[in-house]
Design a protein around this nucleic acid. Structure first.
Lengths: 214, 214
DNA sequence: TAGATTGTTAATCGATTAACAATC
DNA sequence: TAGATTGTTAATCGATTAACAATC
């Protein structure tokens, strides 16, 4: 039974399943049961089955799931099957690192180009991708209509750049600026807040130390 | 009433509160009520009060919370008040970006040094921090006992490096490798899985497109 | 067939929200 | 004092887990 509303918790687990199924598939494993998959993912078999049942029926009684099929299904659910155009806005160290290392294609994206204000960077090519001047953002977006913009500009420019991109019709912002953006409701914002992540680690270490010295 | 077990959901909200209180404080705002704070954070006033009550009583009836005090309390809870030593393992683009841009001090960490295998990087200084050869990891850790290691090595080296650091007694790993690490239970792992994050964005965009074309 | 494993319904558990007495 | 707002208890809501009939 397909569900109407899918909770955020479910969606955040799907990429992990996908990643693991991808690995199994490339290792040549053909089938897996919810209980084996659950064990590997650190969740219950029930949860695996519940999560998948939000989207359809992908398994077979007595057999489990065909890994290739399930991987493809989850890929479809996540939208990996129809690649979307993506641009990087801010080609500093972080933007550069993503251009150099990150496999956008695997996530169903096609990295088209990057933008920066720095004269030193404009016109250079990083991993086959050209860096353009920020001035060309409007004309470029009008012509190529990228679906997603990676926001790797300095904090100070974050909100302004986000608004500009929102006005240009991007559908999603992948926000690395550690700034709480406020944008038009049409635009999805996915935050990668490094600082928050590190603080949770700090908490867990601090708590443990407390306990030990108590 | 202080709680025994604090849920992960609560802990993940604390850094956001902290960040926002920090901003208010630097803007000179003195007090805030749970209802105002909740509105700004997009949560209910109840949730703010419940979250804080896990750790103690920081407010005052009829007044609300003193921002400076509350900020300090949350900082203490998160362990920001007593800085811990941190090293970066892997000084490629991503490690480099963190060294250049990330404010470790604000998260209660002191970035001591970085390690890499690349001859070109060893001995260089990035933002005042020296890059050392990976061979020196053992002797360095024995001497300086860093609490946290930032794992920014290539995927292929991730598991091996994590085990090495675990054996060297680090308390936490901040994992950027997009690899599911398996390490000793003593060691806390905080994952920053870029790929998972981007896939959730992909899902939301894909779902919206579905709805529009339906 | 017999064993395995699904999808789904029901039960449980935990997290969020509402309500309110206490009190600044 | 009167109004505001806390900390906490109770009610609600949603997510996770368990159970099991269906069936490959």
């Amino acid at each position: 039974m397909k569900k109407q509303h899918i909770s955020d918790a479910v969606i955040r687990r799907l990429p992990r399943y996908y990643r693991y199924l991808d690995e199994l598939h490339s290792r040549g494993v053909v089938r897996i049961s919810s209980s084996t998959l659950g064990k590997r993912m650190g969740v219950t078999a029930s949860q695996i089955r519940q999560d998948l049942s939000c989207f359809g029926e992908f398994g077979q009684q007595g057999y489990g799931y065909n890994i290739m099929e399930l991987r493809a299904e989850i890929g479809r659910i996540l939208g990996v099957d129809e690649p979307r155009r993506l641009i990087i806005v801010g080609a500093g160290h972080l933007g550069h690192a993503l251009m150099q290392n990150f496999d956008f294609a695997q996530g169903g994206f096609r990295l088209d180009t990057a933008f920066d204000v720095s004269e030193a960077l404009i016109g250079t090519e990083i991993n086959g991708v050209t860096v353009r001047p920020m001035d060309e953002l409007e004309s470029y977006c009008a012509a190529h209509r990228p679906a997603v913009a990676v926001l790797t500009v300095p904090r100070a420019a974050a909100q302004e750049t986000a608004e500009r991109l929102s006005a240009l019709g991007v559908e999603g912002l992948w926000n690395f600026t550690n700034v709480e953006l406020s944008v038009d409701g049409r635009v999805f914002v996915e935050n990668v807040h490094f600082a928050d992540s590190l603080l949770t680690l700090s908490y867990r270490i601090a708590k443990q130390t407390d306990r030990e010295t108590k």
